[in-house]
Computed example of a mutant assay.
Amino acid sequence: MTPEQKQLIKATVPVLKENGLLLTTHFYQRVFSVNAELKNTFNMANQENGRQPTALAMAVLAYAENIDDPSVLLSTLQRIGHKHTSLAVRPEHYAVIGRHLIASISEVLGTAATPALLDAWTAAYKQLASLMIGIEADLYAAQVTKPGGWTGWRPFIVNAKIAETNGKTTFHLYPADGGTVANFGMSQYLNVRLFMPELQLFQPHPYRVEGAPNGQYYTIVAKRETGKTGSVSNWLLDIVQPGDHLELSAPAGVCPMGAPAEKPALVIRAGGCPMHQAA
C-alpha cells in the first residue's frame, strides 16, 4: 500500500466508529443475497442476533486503526484464522468476500466513497487477505500432519448420548471411518455441522472439546438454547440419537493442538486460551 492509501484508510476511522455496524450489516445482507451458498458456512443465528456483524465491524475498525503496522494484530488474526479453518474457509472465499466488501463500502458511503478511497480499501483488503491466507495455510498444514488430523468436514458417529443432571447432555463422537482422531489442547473447540431442515442449510456450531485426548473419540457437551432458529444444540438434544452421523471440524483454537489437556499451554495472547463463538 502507498502512504497516500494508508492515510485514506485512517481517515475513514471516524466513519467506521459511527457507522461500522451499518456497513457490516449491509455487507452480510449483500453476501447472502448474491452468494446464498455461504449461508452454509456462517452460523445464521449469529446474523439474527447481530453478533457477527458487530464482530466484523470491530475487526474492520481495528485494522483501519493499525493499517501502518497490521502485525500488531497478529494475535487477533491468528484467532480468526483458527475460526476460519474450523469452518473450512479457503483462499477462494477471500475473492468473493472482497468484492462484496468493496461494493458495500461504495453503496453505504455513497458519494463519499471516491475512486481513490475504494482503491485504498481494495489494496488494504488484499493485504489483509494475503495475511489471513498465509496464516490459515500454516494451520491447515499443521492439522493434516498431526496423527489423526484432517481439514474440512469429517463424518463422525454419535456413540453415546448421556443426559446430565445439570440439564446438559454429553456426546461421545467417533470417526465414521474407524480411524484415529487428533489430540487437542486445553480449551480448544471443534465445530459440529448439521443439516437443519427448517433452514434448508448446513449449520456449524462450536463446542469445547471436553476431557483428555485419547486418540479415539471426542467428547462435547450441549445445552439448550432459547430464541434461536435452527439451533444446532437443540437439534442435538431433541433429534440426534446414538448411531446418527454428523460432521466435525478438527480441533482449533489458539492453544497448541498437541498440548496435553491437563496442562496450561503457552498461548499467543495473554489471558489464557479463550472459548470462541461461532463465526
Rank of each mutant, 00 (worst) to 15 (best):
C273M: 06
C255N: 12
A45C: 02
A55N: 13
M257S: 13
G215F: 09
C255R: 14
W153H: 07
S231R: 04
G253Y: 12
N159L: 07
A278I: 02
E107P: 01
V144S: 12
Q241F: 01
L237V: 04
F27A: 13
P91I: 04
E37W: 06
K263G: 00
T151C: 07
V221P: 00
T229D: 03
D69V: 02
W235F: 03
T54S: 15
I268D: 04
S71F: 08
P260K: 10
T76Y: 11
G243K: 06
N183C: 06
T165G: 03
V221D: 00
I105F: 15
Q127E: 13
K263N: 10
I80W: 11
L101W: 07
M44I: 09
A113D: 08
A270Y: 05
K39S: 09
L101T: 02
P260F: 11
E164D: 08
Q78P: 00
E136I: 03
T219M: 08
L131M: 13
G272Q: 04
Q216C: 00
K228S: 06
A212C: 02
L109I: 11
L173G: 05
M275K: 13
G185E: 03
R30N: 11
Q47K: 07
E92R: 11
G271C: 05
H93R: 07
L77D: 11
E4Q: 15
R269Y: 05
Y28E: 05
P242A: 13
K83G: 07
P213V: 01
Q78T: 11
D238T: 07
P175Y: 00
N214W: 12
H205S: 01
Q241I: 01
Q241M: 11
G148K: 15
K223M: 05
A55I: 10
N191Y: 01
Q5D: 13
K17C: 01
A259K: 06
F202L: 03
M58R: 15
G271R: 12
A120Y: 04
H93D: 11
N191H: 02
L194C: 06
N183E: 14
A116K: 14
Q78S: 07
K263I: 15
D69A: 14
F171C: 08
E48I: 12
T170N: 07
G148P: 10
N46D: 10
P213Y: 00
N183Y: 12
T145F: 02
F156K: 12
I220C: 00
T85A: 12
